Amino acid sequence: MGFKLLSKLLVYLTASIMAIASPLAFSVDSSGEYPTVSEIPVGEVRLYQIADGVWSHIATQSFDGAVYPSNGLIVRDGDELLLIDTAWGAKNTAALLAEIEKQIGLPVTRAVSTHFHDDRVGGVDVLRAAGVATYASPSTRRLAEVEGNEIPTHSLEGLSSSGDAVRFGPVELFYPGAAHSTDNLIVYVPSASVLYGGCAIYELSRTSAGNVADADLAEWPTSIERIQQHYPEAQFVIPGHGLPGGLDLLKHTTNVVKAHTNRSVVE
């Protein structure tokens, strides 16, 4: 069995187990497998329904001669939608809004960016022009300005110390501490036991640490421990890039980060 097929099978099995364990909360999309990078042309966006009122959005972007996937989250909030992270750029984010209108038909009224990198804030200006209120932590807003990236308009308070959590509509926002970046936030959907790890969490097929220019490698494993301790009931975990899975993604990420750190020390 090929690795790609095995990865998709694991996603399907995880979703099936969740649907059985929580039949009222989960209505997993039966329309197909989780979209992969090879299936999404740059400039297009796919939506994948995880649970009743919960979707991931998947886009792709060219970077350094390669094409990478990027995940975000959409959560229903009454007759409105909360968006977590842009679709990595203005063109993708405009396509995301169009796809949401086509498939869901509810307005996106608020959006949260989970850290300051372009795959999370690139497209904020498109959201703002569409009347979406954009939010991020003060740290993310400051770092985005320093980096020359787009800056969300509103500040999220109460997320300055490791372990801080605040309720934001249908989700809980959690600051686990520094990891992929010093400002990275985690998003949890309690009604569906869905954990969105953003770039602080890796997919299972990833074996290298990737972009760690703004990471705190020493603190990252401790931050992941905080996530595990705060959300032990999480059933569906979405990484910032690639295929979702279960809580095993947290341990896998820790292993990859520690291996990278150990290699760096040896070198």
Rank of each mutant, 00 (worst) to 15 (best):
V166I: 12
S137L: 14
S155W: 08
V108P: 09
H230N: 13
T109G: 10
S113W: 04
V108E: 01
P170L: 05
A90H: 11
S16V: 13
D125S: 10
E33M: 09
L82A: 03
P152Q: 00
G246K: 10
L73S: 01
G53I: 08
V124I: 10
S161E: 14
L5I: 15
E225C: 04
V112D: 06
A98G: 14
S264P: 12
N184T: 03
T60G: 12
F174L: 09
Y202S: 06
Q103K: 14
A178L: 05
S155T: 14
E39G: 13
G163W: 04
P176I: 03
V121F: 03
A192D: 07
G240A: 05
T153R: 10
I84P: 00
K4W: 06
V75W: 02
V108W: 02
A66K: 11
T182E: 13
E233W: 09
V212L: 08
L96I: 05
V266R: 13
I201G: 03
V124Q: 03
P41M: 10
F26Y: 11
A209L: 08
V146D: 14
H241R: 04
D119I: 01
N262A: 12
M1S: 05
T207D: 15
A25I: 10
Q229P: 05
V42W: 06
R128S: 13
R120Y: 01
Y188I: 01
I40F: 08
T14K: 11
R206S: 15
W88S: 02
I20A: 12
T182W: 13
R206V: 15
H180W: 00
W55S: 01
R226G: 05
V54T: 06
D52L: 10
V189T: 01
N184Y: 04
Y202F: 15
G2K: 11
T253R: 02
T86D: 00
P170V: 06
S31R: 10
H230G: 09
S223N: 01
L6S: 15
D118T: 08
E101Y: 11
A178F: 06
L243C: 08
Q228W: 11
Q229C: 04
V124T: 10
R142A: 14
A66W: 09
G240V: 04
P232M: 08
T222D: 13
A59H: 06
V187H: 00
V187I: 09
I224G: 03
I151E: 04
D64Y: 15
A133S: 12
G169S: 05
G210N: 05
V42A: 14
P152G: 01
A209S: 10
S155Q: 14
A130E: 10
M18T: 12
T182Y: 14
F26S: 14
L24T: 14
T207S: 12
R76T: 08
H241M: 01
L143K: 08
Y12V: 10
Y135T: 00
T93Y: 00
D64Q: 11
D216V: 09
S30Q: 12
Y12D: 14
Y202A: 07
L217I: 14
T109Y: 07
Y196W: 04
A136E: 03
D79K: 09
